[in-house]
Design a protein around this nucleic acid. Structure first.
Lengths: 347, 347
DNA sequence: TTGGCAATCTGTAACGTTTCAGTATACTGA
DNA sequence: TCAGTATACTGAAACGTTACAGATTGCCAA
């Protein structure tokens, strides 16, 4: 039993959210005109346009997302697809903050779409595309031959990858130059006289695993140092596993005198393992590690660090997706972040 | 120039996403009947209902969110409102994972709504409510007299707070028992013979600041220990500030021999400060700290820790909001997480 | 036979937006 | 004068869903 009038509704009810109809009534124009005036369509008179926009601003008109979405299919949503088990901790918050920073003054919302180890990583992406839940997607844990990227490219939905692919397909990405990182790390250790180096790799299968391994290997031969294989762990392993295996490694006769680590959390475990083996950081072995927040130097001042800025990554990824949505050339929306120098502790 | 037929559209186009109309055509029923059959309305014959649901499942029908939202106002969205500057790192990812875990098998999406230091914390909440962008909201950094909670209560939108309020108003929350934590920490330190204790507090103004301070004070008088005031920092301060001020504190004659810290990141800085002052953890001073991931024992094995599970918090908060949305009594959707025992390093 | 009623099913309208296909008016050029 | 056209505006329809107000059928009691 709705007792409200049907036509004059917008006039009387000050409490309801204003719609185009409200604006039309207030300005004495048609709904269509108001709609077009708000988006600066050329066939609307300049004065009318100003008038409508003024009134709209005054009464705080905001387009109804559901209406727009139903009519046009535009969701004004960016989805960040995350693995809820593997993603490194601070990684996630920083990326999210980076993304929100960029979309803050756009009509876009950020939705977080999770998937777990048990699932096919393609599942969440398929869901998003099939249900048309987002205008753009950001994925991480990118693989050289990434089915998700291929799928989205086929379906024509804008996306950006954190990390590069290697399929001969062009799409926006942001990546940290892990080849350069590993190289710098090796050169730095070599410069300190370290000669037998081990690498704690990224997860096997991800693109930057290859970049890191190659950067490591190339620099090794460049400086004439040798590699101590340490293939039993990657940064995806648990703290306990990394710690234990590092301890094993460090108890061997042919133990490394330098270690390069691809993630801060792993580095904590590596150092624990080193100390479990009765060795001392900075004396028996040096460690260069990536980190995304300035914590490692508090942990052990002997650690050597290279910073990776995930907040920046988030911003770049958001910019890339928005750019693609906006019609820019996907090939122009690729960026690579160069690592800074290896930093020792400064008093 | 759309050349497709108007009526038989659903019959021919196998590529389009199925709608109620598609189902209606396939089953030979009316759109209304299909709609009701899918939601188990009682006035639909049992067999029809089964038939419709079968076909719907077969062709992978999924209701169009925009259609539902436009018609009913239901968004199927939960919004997590985050401060992009203050929130502790791993905190955020864990909460998000906890939330997504719970909403995974519901139609809900999670959107992240950020706000920054410069803004009124009420802004994002007001935006969500005014635009009807979410069915439920989760907020953190809860204050005793929290305008956001008051606002949402007035507007009748379901929400849950991470942390309690103290306004005499009833609403769902999840909280960690910081009163108990601080008390346990003090008792543990006292049990080790520590007598002069300092507290690194939560941010002043948040509800759990009070809980922590009270737990600390009550336990102090219970065990007959004394407090060394350390009001110049809270866990919201920067690593550098905390480190410097801890060093200052520890150089004084009346320095504490025990410290209770409310967050892991702050603890790193505290320990650095202690060592800057030339003192040794475990000998000159003991530190009990909360942590949300098992890192502190890698950092210094002398540290004493109490775990706070943010993933659990996320799950509980999500459950609470969904419960309220589902019509449950808000008063029944409150939970308090009891801290475990203070843990020393175990081999 | 008829009226009443329960059980099932259905068409229409509406949510707020944009697109399509106009209409009305005034101005232009010949 | 008149057609032609540019300018400024408008109503109706459609996106997919649900609520409302029926419609149809069969059955039972009187």
């Amino acid at each position: 039993m709705d007792r409200r009038a049907t036509e004059k509704d917008d006039e009387t009810s000050a409490k309801e959210r204003p719609t185009l109809k409200t604006l039309a009534f207030m300005t004495g124009l048609g709904v269509t005109t108001v709609s077009r005036a708000l988006k600066d369509a050329p066939e609307i008179g300049a004065e009318t346009r100003r008038r409508v926009q003024l009134v709209a601003k005054q009464i705080g008109y905001r387009p109804n997302r559901a209406g727009v979405r139903l009519r046009t299919g535009k969701t004004n949503v960016i989805s960040l697809v995350l693995n809820t088990e593997h993603e490194i901790m601070s990684f996630v918050s920083d990326i999210i903050y980076g993304v929100t920073e960029v979309i803050a003054d756009t009509p876009y919302h950020l939705i977080v779409t999770p998937y777990s180890r048990s699932q096919d990583p393609l599942d969440p992406v398929r869901y998003l595309v099939e249900t048309g839940s987002a205008d753009g997607v950001i994925i991480s844990r990118t693989q050289p031959n990434d089915p998700r990227a291929r799928y989205m490219l086929e379906r024509g939905i804008p996306f950006a990858t954190h990390g590069r692919t290697d399929m001969g397909l062009v799409h926006p990405y942001h990546d940290f130059d892990n080849y350069a990182f590993a190289g710098e790390a090796v050169r730095h250790l070599a410069g300190m006289g370290r000669r037998r180096l081990a690498l704690v790799t990224p997860p096997v299968g991800l693109t930057y695993y290859g970049h890191t391994v190659n950067g490591f290997a190339d620099a090794l031969s460049e400086v004439g140092a040798s590699e101590v294989p340490f293939n039993t762990v990657s940064i995806d392993h648990t703290i306990e596993q990394i710690r234990m295996r590092t301890a094993q490694l460090m108890r061997r006769d042919d133990r490394p005198d330098g270690i390069v680590s691809s993630a801060a959390a792993a580095t904590l475990a590596v150092v624990a393992g080193i100390e479990d083996a009765g060795l001392k950081l900075g004396r028996d072995v040096d460690v260069v590690s990536k980190q995304s927040s300035e914590l490692l130097h508090l942990f052990r001042r002997e650690l050597l660090v290279v910073n990776e800025n995930f907040r920046l990554a988030g911003s770049e990824l958001a910019r890339a997706v928005l750019g693609w949505i906006g019609g820019a050339d996907p090939g122009s929306l690729q960026s690579l972040s160069t690592p800074g120098e290896v930093q020792a502790y400064r008093g």
